[in-house]
Design a protein around this nucleic acid. Structure first.
Lengths: 179, 179
DNA sequence: ACGCTATCGATAGGAGCTTGCAATTGTGAG
DNA sequence: CTCACAATTGCAAGCTCCTATCGATAGCGT
């Protein structure tokens, strides 16, 4: 799933709709395939292949193959939130873009329109057409940003051996791998 | 190097300056260490650990350890440009931020001030403090964006099995892995 | 019900990075 | 300059995330 295919996203609201879309495109509806789709509908955000495979007792290779197939056919997309595995999400109701906090892992999901002025600014200045579907905007969430400024100039700032790693506490926002 | 340490960047212009900075901080100047520093000064952009190790005939594990140490001490930073290995770069003259084209891999390096208004906009709207040093802004460079709109609605758009993968041609902009 | 072939699970393999460990080598003290 | 000790090294194994191969299984059109 290393690269993001440039495929038009299919439109669907329900599991049945997604299934119908798959069958129209000549894809078989194997049991694993259907289970994976159901799991994606049940999930409330992007989930990893590993997580899906574990929950459904499916072979992880098979899950990757299926996710890749579904992505090629425009049913799902994957996003890279910081380090860690790629995370997959349905796009039947439209693609979302993401803000990712590298302090605590929190994810803020936004509608594309919310980033349009930013997009226009970048296009004007640099000519780049940017989207934060495949790779998010990365930074610090309000909470982590506050912690950061507080600890700026703290005593051990000159002692990198004893970094305060606030990278493991989790704001209850979102647990991407666990859906 | 998986996470990005929040360490103040050291200031230095020359190799000697960097060496002095290291020694001040109690780091030994082993031969591999000095070679790696020299190589980073010789490079004209971010380079991978693998690349440095190969060029200098050093063990890749040792190179990773050294890069991590130097990063912890604020001499260098790493950036993740799309998929592929992390890339390391000196920060003695200040950190840069990056725009990355996921079409062709081109990298546009920019001074932080050039993104300040964007940064302010994101902070106002979402409260996030964003920096594109560790993870770049990802999108399509002007050239790839043009190709994209041209091929939109092309005949094979409905045939994902035969995607045109324009992901391999390289605009001569930059070859990050190769320095 | 049958047969074609897409898809499956199992297994091996590769890229990128980390860790454990014994051997080596900077470095500061004498 | 020499010594001793800890920092650092190369090597090898290992980990995570993902891809490829392959014989077996099971959708799906007829």
């Amino acid at each position: 799933m290393t690269s993001a295919p440039q495929v038009p996203t299919l439109r669907f609201e329900t599991l049945d709709g997604a299934v119908a879309a798959m069958r129209e495109r000549g894809l078989r509806l194997s049991t694993p395939r259907r289970l994976i789709l159901e799991d994606l509908f049940a999930a409330d955000g992007p989930v990893s292949a590993e997580y899906v495979a574990r929950r459904l007792s499916l072979d992880v290779a098979s899950v990757y193959r299926n996710l890749e197939t579904m992505e090629r056919h425009g049913l799902i997309r994957h996003v890279h939130l910081g380090h860690g595995p790629g995370l997959y999400v349905l796009v039947g109701r439209g693609e979302r873009e993401h803000l990712y906090c590298e302090g605590c892992g929190a994810v803020r999901t936004v509608e594309p329109e919310e980033l349009d002025s930013l997009r226009d600014g970048v296009r004007e200045r640099f000519g780049f057409s940017v989207r934060f579907t495949h790779f998010p905007i990365v930074g610090l969430c309000p909470r982590c940003a506050a912690l950061e400024t507080v600890s700026d100039g703290a005593s051990h700032a000159a002692d990198p051996e004893h970094q305060h790693s606030h990278g493991d506490h989790v704001h209850s926002h979102s647990h991407p791998h666990g859906g």
